[in-house]
Amino acid sequence: MLVILDWDGTVCNSEARIVSCMQRASDRVGLPVLEPAAIGNIIGLGLPEAIAALFPESHSEQRARLRGFYSEEWVAARAEPLPLFDGVLVTLDQLLGAGHQLAVATGKSRRGLNREFEDHGIGHLFPVSRCADETASKPDPKMLREILAETDVDVADAVMVGDTEYDLKMASAINMASVGVSYGVHSRERLDGCRPHRIIDHFTELLEWPPLVA
């Protein structure tokens, strides 16, 4: 089976850094410094879409400056690599050992995802990935369709795993199975409203989902 993973909030514990970088960047632009919950709500969207959702009254020049400042803040904070969630590495190894394929579908930029791959030395585990600056942002399912086409896998043989309703909605749009993770940015209640096939509380529980059981 093809296991397509969201990155931020699913594989990588990055919520706090995303929030702090957005707060610092918005302050530099002169836009309101929003509460963590508001910023956490848009994690998973592409950066332009996230900024538009957070600051709908901002103009195009402010949004462009905010994107630039956010990228600067993110790079400046990179000296300390972000942690992967507990159990991620062992679970990925077991999925591959059982013959499953892995891919990533993320709201990050290509540059950002490649940095994460480099920091953790696991890019080779994901021969196929799609980022928001390469295709349509979630919840549009275009990135999933592109991953399926590149891997030559039928939608019935794939599952999307993510921590937000954006992940689950894009899977639902093309009738792909989905698994929500409760430890990310969206609540279990929000995930449950998208009717995923399962919601897990720890990454290792993926190995207990029947279609992935070796």
Results as ranks from 00 to 15, higher is better:
residue 197 H to D: 15
residue 73 E to Q: 13
residue 105 A to V: 10
residue 156 A to E: 11
residue 47 L to S: 03
residue 24 R to Y: 01
residue 198 R to T: 13
residue 176 M to H: 12
residue 118 E to D: 15
residue 116 E to K: 04
residue 32 P to I: 00
residue 57 E to G: 05
residue 105 A to I: 08
residue 81 P to R: 02
residue 212 L to E: 05
residue 80 E to P: 00
residue 59 H to W: 03
residue 165 E to N: 07
residue 31 L to E: 06
residue 102 L to Q: 10
residue 207 L to F: 11
residue 90 V to S: 13
residue 25 A to Q: 00
residue 112 G to D: 02
residue 214 A to D: 13
residue 103 A to C: 06
residue 83 P to W: 04
residue 70 Y to D: 03
residue 200 I to E: 06
residue 26 S to K: 00
residue 71 S to W: 00
residue 177 A to Q: 13
residue 173 A to K: 00
residue 22 M to P: 03
residue 24 R to L: 12
residue 49 E to A: 11
residue 208 E to A: 15
residue 123 G to V: 03
residue 101 Q to L: 15
residue 210 P to T: 15
residue 144 L to K: 01
residue 47 L to F: 01
residue 82 L to M: 10
residue 39 I to K: 04
residue 100 H to N: 15
residue 135 T to I: 07
residue 136 A to N: 11
residue 152 D to M: 06
residue 207 L to G: 05
residue 42 I to M: 03
residue 108 K to P: 00
residue 85 F to R: 04
residue 157 D to W: 05
residue 101 Q to I: 08
residue 94 Q to T: 07
residue 91 T to P: 00
residue 172 S to C: 10
residue 75 V to P: 02
residue 130 R to L: 00
residue 110 R to Q: 10
residue 103 A to V: 04
residue 105 A to S: 15
residue 21 C to N: 08
residue 46 G to S: 12
residue 61 E to V: 14
residue 168 L to K: 05
residue 61 E to P: 01
residue 199 I to L: 09
residue 94 Q to R: 15
residue 136 A to H: 12
residue 26 S to G: 05
residue 192 D to N: 12
residue 163 D to H: 07
residue 149 A to E: 14
residue 152 D to E: 08
residue 207 L to H: 07
residue 70 Y to W: 12
residue 141 P to T: 07
residue 7 W to I: 00
residue 48 P to R: 11
residue 188 R to E: 14
residue 211 P to C: 04
residue 108 K to R: 15
residue 50 A to M: 07
residue 53 A to F: 10
residue 34 L to H: 04
residue 203 F to N: 03
residue 41 N to Y: 09
residue 204 T to P: 01
residue 165 E to Y: 09
residue 154 D to S: 14
residue 145 R to K: 14
residue 61 E to A: 13
residue 87 G to Q: 01
residue 161 V to W: 02
residue 118 E to Q: 14
residue 30 G to W: 00
residue 134 E to N: 10
residue 27 D to M: 03
residue 81 P to L: 06
residue 57 E to K: 14
residue 45 L to Q: 02
residue 194 C to I: 02
residue 166 Y to C: 10
residue 16 A to V: 10
residue 111 R to K: 07
residue 25 A to C: 01
residue 198 R to N: 10
residue 108 K to G: 05
residue 207 L to T: 05
residue 113 L to E: 02
residue 82 L to A: 01
residue 120 H to I: 07
residue 63 R to E: 10
residue 60 S to Y: 07
residue 88 V to T: 02
residue 34 L to R: 12
residue 75 V to L: 14
